[in-house]
Design a protein around this nucleic acid. Structure first.
Lengths: 164, 164
DNA sequence: GAAGATTGTTGTTGACGACAACAATTGTCC
DNA sequence: GGACAATTGTTGTCGTCAACAACAATCTTC
């Protein structure tokens, strides 16, 4: 992020079509700096990339991790319940579960009380896998701490607590 | 957000296929609460939705707004320069500029010093339009303040300052 | 039992990030 | 000065993701 911004040079015009070399960090974005959404977007991109990279060996993305975590902590939930809790479209959750079920991490069990819905459970290997994922996720979280500072990370979690 | 979570009911199993009714906010996500990425993702979704809604009348999305703002503050930049500064793929910026140019907000001028590149400028109506967009964006920012508090918003901007 | 709501599913659309390839042009190096 | 590498804008593909819409099967409600 800081690395890629340092060595790039480009052109800036004087009048209309002319241009002189300038550095990327010379470009003013003053109007954007005051916008929370812009800062949050850039940060979110960084944090997701680090998560994906840190959990790269086990091939688990943030959304998959959140689904596994919720099912692990609340076995038997319906797809509707998981979707609502995580703010995921139930249509999207179908594909997520298809993938996780193919990898034998999750199983859909037909509910006996409501034959429309499925009770979601982790498989045996799903549980051991999730334990490993959580260790890697904790490592990712340490990267976040190293990037923005321990106190800032905690303050951030505090500020955004009721969005979870 | 708080509204939609309140009245939903679903099922929770006792053993395997059985289930009892519970509320959405009864579902534990303890493991997720400690993750900065999850909180940031949920917040980012909220903040973008509010931005899109607030700038809905003028049909401007966050990315388009950031492009217009950078060009407005630094007229004559090349596409490469804008893309690098905003962390956008230059391939993606092509389509963004196509759209903005069709709407007569931006114009691409062939650079005289480097015939490969274009110098980007706002049109006349692009400038007046951007002024209006900025007023609406400020209104959106007030929504953020109302949601997380004035002090928290400023602290957030401070924490994430070097991601912009 | 009929009418309406819910659940999982399939499909479409559009925004977006990541890559790869290409022609035109510029920069570099011998 | 001329071959070779790098850059710029462009086009294209692929996969992720949010937002809808429609549908069959199954509850709920009255």
């Amino acid at each position: 992020m800081t690395a890629s911004a340092a060595q790039t040079s480009l052109r800036k015009l004087a009048g209309n079509g002319a241009a002189r070399r300038i550095d990327t960090d010379e470009i003013g974005v003053d109007a954007l700096v005051g916008h929370a959404g812009y800062a949050v977007r850039r940060f979110q991109i960084w944090i997701f990339q680090d998560f994906i990279r840190t959990l790269g060996d086990v091939d688990i993305r943030p959304t998959q991790y959140s689904v596994l975590t919720v099912i692990g902590a609340n076995p038997g939930l319906s797809q509707m319940a998981v979707a609502k809790r995580l703010g995921i479209e139930r249509a999207r959750l179908v594909h997520l579960l298809d993938s996780l079920e193919q990898r034998r991490l999750v199983k859909r069990i037909k509910s006996k009380t409501d034959r429309r819905s499925h009770a979601l459970h982790l498989t045996g290997q799903g549980e051991t896998a999730l334990a490993k994922f959580k260790r890697l996720a904790a490592e990712h979280e340490r990267h976040v701490e190293a990037r923005i500072g321990k106190a800032n990370r905690e303050r951030l979690l505090q500020i955004l607590a009721d969005f979870t």
